[in-house]
């Protein structure tokens, strides 16, 4: 299986700059309190999220499940700092992301969150290497340091040999693995994924979830995955269900 060398790499990965220190017993990485998101439609208020409180620990692989429109993607977007709540708090590693200005939030996302999208969202004109390098262009790293980090990330997803390929020259599964490499290249504590296997066949989906799971287990990353798929949820260490903007369990 193709993911084996990745797992091996993750297990033997002592020198990787992506290797986070394994600390336990600390405060939760994500602390959500009374979080609401309301859309106003004329006179009617629609609650996408209704007073949600939730803690997510370091190294946790949390899956957010629920029917369409249940608010799971909205919650993910707020945690990741690309959407703002109507009220409530969302602290990630101690920082209340709801209080950051737009440009502060952009910097914060770059340094603290890795994103994986359902549609991969690789830039079609850039090679796998260049796509993974993108977030690093916003850091102070030299091009040599960037190269080293990009190669490590691509090795972790088993695609170092494809770094010169354009997205259209890769399969869906490979594209998503490049997207994962891009998500973890800045060594963020938090990796969020919105339906990462939604566009993949079952083999590729398995590979992708395997990698995400290893990131939690080996590198103590906190991974939050929005999914419809119970098979995907089975990879997580905890599953949270949302319904009509509220926690169901």
């Amino acid at each position: 299986m193709e993911s084996d060398p990745i797992l091996n790499l993750l297990h033997s990965n002592v020198t990787s700059p992506l290797n986070a220190s394994e600390e336990t017993g600390e405060a939760p990485v994500v602390q959500i309190q009374e979080l609401s998101k309301v859309y106003q439609q004329g006179e009617i208020s629609i609650y996408a999220l209704n007073r949600i409180s939730l803690n997510i620990a370091q190294g946790e692989f949390l899956t957010l499940m629920g029917p369409s429109g249940s608010g799971k993607s909205t919650l993910l977007h707020i945690i990741a700092g690309i959407d703002r709540p109507s009220s409530g708090q969302c602290r990630v590693q101690g920082i209340d992301v709801t209080k950051l200005s737009e440009s502060e939030l952009a910097d914060w996302r770059n340094q603290n969150v890795g994103f994986v999208f359902q549609t991969f969202n690789l830039l079609p004109v850039l090679t796998a290497f260049e796509n993974v390098e993108l977030p690093l262009l916003l850091t102070r790293l030299t091009s040599k340091q960037r190269k080293k980090q990009v190669l490590t990330a691509l090795e972790l997803v088993g695609l170092a040999d494809r770094m010169g390929h354009l997205p259209r020259q890769l399969s869906g599964g490979q594209e998503q693995r490049v997207a994962i490499a891009r998500a973890l290249v800045t060594d963020p504590q938090l990796i969020v994924a919105d339906e990462p296997t939604g566009n993949l066949d079952s083999n590729s989906a398995h590979e992708v979830l395997d990698i995400l799971q290893s990131l939690c287990k080996v590198a103590a990353k906190t991974v939050i995955v929005v999914t419809h798929d119970p098979k995907a949820a089975a990879f997580g260490s905890r599953s949270v269900h949302l319904e009509k903007g509220e926690l169901a369990n």
């Binding site: 770059n110 994103f115 999208f117």
Partner: peptide, 10 residues
């Protein structure tokens, strides 16, 4: 979508 992705990346 490319623009959105770039914004998300920071």
């Amino acid at each position: 979508r490319e623009v959105g992705t770039l914004r998300v990346l920071g």
